[in-house]
């Protein structure tokens, strides 16, 4: 029964011999260079860009004086924010970099430098 089905199926299936399967040809190397569905590698952002974007997010916060913002400011000590503002900024950073920071980590982020460090080490930041 199974063998009859197998032969029936095999009789109708034709596998086209495509050029893309040639190992030494140029098309193979094209495939191996572009890993379009991969989450690793090419889209990682540089530290300068992270610093720039983190500072932009903090500066756009309504209660913050943009002239005071620097890469090493502490949110509550230097910018005069309270703990709720701190959480709000971390949420804004999550939105900007499309992350989800776990609550325990998010509690620790209380300054620009820690935020930059965390996002820089996060593999999914974009």
């Amino acid at each position: 029964m199974a063998s009859a089905l197998r032969s029936a199926v095999l009789r109708h299936i034709r596998v086209p011999v495509a050029e893309t399967l040639t190992l030494n040809g140029s098309k193979w190397s094209l495939i191996s260079n572009v890993r379009s569905m991969s989450s690793h590698g090419d889209d990682h952002i540089t530290k300068e860009e992270i610093i720039h974007r983190v500072l932009d997010v903090v500066k756009s916060f309504p209660k913050v004086d943009p002239s005071k913002v620097a890469p090493d400011v502490h949110f509550q000590k230097d910018l005069g924010l309270d703990s709720l503002d701190n959480v709000e900024i971390v949420m804004a950073l999550e939105e900007e970099f499309k992350l989800e920071i776990p609550d325990k980590e998010a509690d620790k982020i209380d300054s620009c430098s820690l935020a930059i460090e965390y996002i820089h080490n996060h593999p999914m930041a974009s």
Binding site: S83, L84, V87, E88, M91, E94, E100, D103, A106, D107
Partner: peptide
């Protein structure tokens, strides 16, 4: 206090 922050986070998300 911690619960309020957790709630704020879930609301933001």
């Amino acid at each position: 206090r911690i619960r309020v922050f957790d709630f704020f986070r879930s609301a933001c998300r």
